[in-house]
Amino acid sequence: MTDDAPVTTAASPVTSSGPAAGATREGRPAAGPSAGGRRAKRSQRRKYLEIAFFVTPALAMLLLFVVWPVITAVQMSVFRWNGRGPLVDFVGLANYVSILGNDVFVGSLVNNLIIVVTSIAIQLPLGLAIALLLNRKMWGQGALRTIIFVPYVLAEVVAGVIWFQLVQPQYGVIDTILLAVGIEPPAQGWLGDMDLALWTVVAILTWKYLGLAVILFLAGLQGVPEELYEAAQLDGASWWQVQRRITIPLLGPTIRTWGFLSMIGSLQLFDMVWILTKGGPANATSTMAVFLVNEGTRSNNFGIAGAASVILFLIALVMAVLYQRLILRRDAKGVA
């Protein structure tokens, strides 16, 4: 156990300042060439073996199932390939040119962006309003929070299958209720109408994910110190003033991080669309994920699917980095 002695002393300042502690530690064994140095070297090697033992399984999984497929997608994207035989028909950037001129892909991309923007534009004010209203002592608060979370924990498939029945033309309950109050529903049904289908999907997504916004905002609200409210109350601030001047600004970090989650989710949207419309009618609700699954599995255009994957990844990456730079950076600074 003497092996561990030098490590103990070196390891103690670790949590306070990582890199600095590491630097002094590097210097020590080099200074003493004696027996102590050899022992330190051996324990050093042992430490690296331990690190390798702990980290390797996770890293291997990442390499095999995440990194490798992504590299393959890039490779596929510069070949014409139907999924069989070797990659030989090199076409350069032709697949990219082809999909960027493809109305279905561009339409899918636009749909994704519409969903990113509308999801945030609808769910943020609505979620905030509900969270602020519910953030008070009231009867049944715990039950209410649980109920609001129900749509979020449902599988998108399950939610989609139920909603698919609800919005059916003729025998769907939504149409029945609308007719009862004298509103004429669209003749081809909500999901069959070219102009309405995407908005119907957005509405259903709002139902599915509003609860997450409310729950995260409510959790964020619990971090607002009560003294602030008491002080504001003493100063005679009204409820609205308190919310606008204190609560919402302090909720900033929660809102911004929720926005990030929402954006990434919208870019990857597949399940709900696949269940509700398969991207139809006439690709009106198609998303990038729907497009690449169609190309990859139905048409066997793996080159095209690869190019679509790469573009989807680049868009997600650029949006994530921009979001990080422009919006999240403030929070990181605030903490540091």
Binding site: G18, P69, A73, G306, S309
Partner: peptide
Amino acid sequence: RYTFKGREALFMVFVAGLLFPATVAVIPL
């Protein structure tokens, strides 16, 4: 809980993994 050279870089590998949504890689996968 270990101190070693390249710890933060190793951690960044995992953070970067967050940026690869499963959807992107699903066809090659």
